[in-house]
Simulated scan of single mutants.
Amino acid sequence: MKTILHKAATRGHANHGWLNSYHTFSFAGYHDPERMHFGALRVLNDDTVAKGMGFGKHPHDNMEIVSIPLSGDLHHNDSTGRDKIIRQGDVQIMSAGSGIAHSEMNANSDRDVKFLQVWVFPKEKNIAPRYEQKSFAHEDRKNSIATVVAPDDDSAVWINQDAWFSLADLSAGNEIGYTLHKNGNGIYVFVLEGDVTVNGQALNKRDGLGITGADTISIKADSEAQLLFIDVPMTIGG
């Protein structure tokens, strides 16, 4: 088993006024050759967008782009004609495929929106652009692991990759295990809130831990905690 630890304070950071963004992996003006990706996981951005502001329409291709609002509402519009509001509790995926342009704006005029934007390299290139969004009940992940993105689960949003995203909200002292979905995949654990110990490694808010060479991992909540699990192939392309 191998691990790679990314402490919250070591992330790249860009504050544009309207956008305050932390980058776990190299992105835009932040470049670290040691932090380009974790297997098929390419981008993990922790974004805060000021009220009424956002990303104007811009293009993507051949990337799986997952958005997870943490607070506030996000307004998505894209070149296929989709016009959606993504709220806390929702998970959205956009398979950029052969090419798509989209905008993401803060839908609120009175508060910031905080969300994660996660990019995963696709399994198949140049598929028809695809969009999906679902809501997930908070109680389904209370002291449990709830899958929200998957290639093989109709209750989750579909991804063009052998990748699974899961969320968990843990009470202090609770211990759970995570079993990887596919042989050869790695798991990236990102702490949204609180303090946890994963396979003996203490983690705090916004820390990330990548683990390879393990079939299962153990998690203990040292406080009330919220976690995101990203289970991805370690070979890009599937």
Rank of each mutant, 00 (worst) to 15 (best):
H6K: 14
A8C: 08
A8D: 09
G12Q: 03
G12C: 06
N15F: 14
S21H: 07
Y22D: 06
H23L: 01
T24K: 00
F25H: 07
F25L: 03
F25D: 02
F25M: 05
F27E: 01
Y30Q: 06
D32I: 04
R35W: 14
M36K: 14
V43T: 12
N45Q: 04
T48P: 04
A50H: 05
G52L: 01
G52I: 01
G52S: 01
G54V: 11
F55A: 05
G56Q: 09
H58G: 01
H58I: 01
H58D: 02
P59C: 08
H60K: 07
M63C: 08
S71P: 03
S71N: 11
D73E: 13
L74R: 02
H76M: 10
S79V: 13
T80A: 10
K84V: 15
R87Q: 10
R87L: 04
R87F: 06
G89F: 06
Q92R: 07
I93E: 02
I93C: 01
I93Q: 02
M94S: 03
S95Y: 09
S98T: 13
G99H: 04
G99T: 03
I100M: 05
A101L: 10
M105L: 12
S109H: 13
S109D: 12
K114Y: 08
K114H: 15
F115L: 12
F115E: 02
L116S: 00
P122S: 10
N126I: 11
A128C: 08
A128E: 15
P129K: 09
R130V: 03
Y131P: 04
Y131K: 06
E132P: 03
K134F: 01
K134M: 04
A146Y: 10
V149A: 00
A150F: 05
D154Y: 09
D154H: 11
A156F: 01
V157H: 01
Q161G: 04
D169F: 11
N174D: 13
E175I: 14
E175M: 10
T179L: 12
L180F: 11
H181Y: 13
K182H: 14
G184P: 02
N185H: 14
V189A: 06
V191T: 08
L192T: 02
V196K: 09
T197N: 14
V198L: 10
V198C: 12
N199C: 13
G200N: 04
I211F: 12
T212I: 15
G213F: 11
G213V: 08
A214R: 15
A214D: 14
A214Q: 15
I219P: 04
S223C: 01
S223N: 02
A225V: 05
L228R: 00
L228K: 00
I230E: 00
I230C: 00
I230M: 05
I230K: 00
D231N: 10
D231T: 07
V232T: 14
P233Q: 11
